[in-house]
């Protein structure tokens, strides 16, 4: 319940944050704090300094830039949930945000904080993969943009290097014929995903032209179900196709398991929720 001591630095710009991180390699960025503070309270995390970036204006807000939606890393789950722009141009994200944690958590927790933390059971990563999002990362040597496919590198591990900050999330604007959905089984206590599958499909003439499917919760990090994507592309997404395609999508040996849900069961759930997510996405296309 009580964290260790640390020094606290509130910054107003990304550059300030970067220079503080460089000075103190043990410092952690504090965004909404809804992953970090609980870990610190259980003394599982013990940074000597926190750099509070939650008020950095340049990290906030949702805007459209051509065919891309640019979401500031410090945008809260609530802001995503309520965003009229997203509801129109990328309805998957408000849908996912709506089931994260609870309202009080959503009022503080941020998209950037969640992605940077890369909890293997977080909900957003699956949708980032399905949407084909990309992440802008800024460091002292300038900035770079990393595809979601290359962003989640392991359990609690991302492409963000030391001294770097995730500043923006770029999401393509939904185009004609596109449907997207997220289907999940939530852990009844933690409310994190046991298995969550996000699907984005582009349909034309009743046939799937493109599919992207992201899975979270079951493995060490969120990942694409590429085989499934290939298996359904070029086909109608009817029950028979989906049922045939969603079989043994992942190997239990590659998954996490605990006393609530074993790896075998999670592997089964990936099949079930992938099928449901694709069906729901097709229904919305």
């Amino acid at each position: 319940m009580y964290t260790n001591q640390f020094s606290y630095h509130r910054v107003n710009t990304v550059q300030e944050a970067i220079s503080l991180l460089q000075k103190n390699p043990d410092a952690r960025l504090l965004a909404g704090g809804h992953s970090l503070i609980p870990a610190m309270k259980l003394r599982l995390s013990d940074p000597s300094a926190l750099v509070d970036i939650s008020r950095v204006a340049e990290l906030k807000g949702i805007r459209q830039r051509g065919n891309t939606l640019v979401i500031g890393a410090m945008t809260t789950h609530s802001e995503i949930e309520d965003s009229a722009l997203l509801k129109q141009l990328c309805p998957l994200l408000p849908e996912v945000a709506h089931i994260i944690g609870d309202p009080a958590v959503r009022n503080r927790g941020t998209l950037g904080g969640s992605l940077a933390h890369a909890d293997p059971a977080a909900d957003y990563p699956a949708s980032m993969l399905a949407l084909g999002a990309s992440m802008k990362i800024v460091g002292s040597n300038g900035d770079r943009v990393v595809d979601a496919d290359n962003f989640f590198t392991g359990m609690f591990a991302t492409a963000i290097g030391s001294g770097e900050i995730l500043t923006e999330i770029h999401v393509p604007v939904k185009t004609a014929g596109v449907g997207m959905a997220y289907e999940t089984m939530m852990h009844p206590a933690s409310r994190y995903a046991i298995v969550g599958v996000a699907a984005m499909v582009r349909m034309s003439g009743g046939v799937c032209q493109e599919a992207r499917v992201g899975m979270t919760g079951a493995g060490h990090h969120a990942m694409r179900l590429s085989g499934l994507e290939a298996a359904v592309t070029g086909k109608p997404l009817d029950a028979a196709t989906l049922s045939a395609a969603c079989k043994s999508l992942v190997r239990p040996a590659d998954l996490l398991g605990d006393h609530f849900a074993s790896a075998d069961y999670r592997a089964h759930l990936v099949d079930v929720y992938a099928q449901r997510a694709l069906a729901a996405a097709a229904g919305k296309a």
Partner: peptide
């Protein structure tokens, strides 16, 4: 009130700038 140490229970919810937050998951400095 404080009912847990993992941000689950919500006994500590207050409003900060008009929004519900869990005051056990926020440092006073924030």
């Amino acid at each position: 009130h404080i009912g847990c140490d993992t941000s689950q229970c919500g006994a500590c919810v207050v409003h900060v700038d008009g929004q519900a937050v869990k005051s056990c998951t926020l440092f006073a400095v924030q």
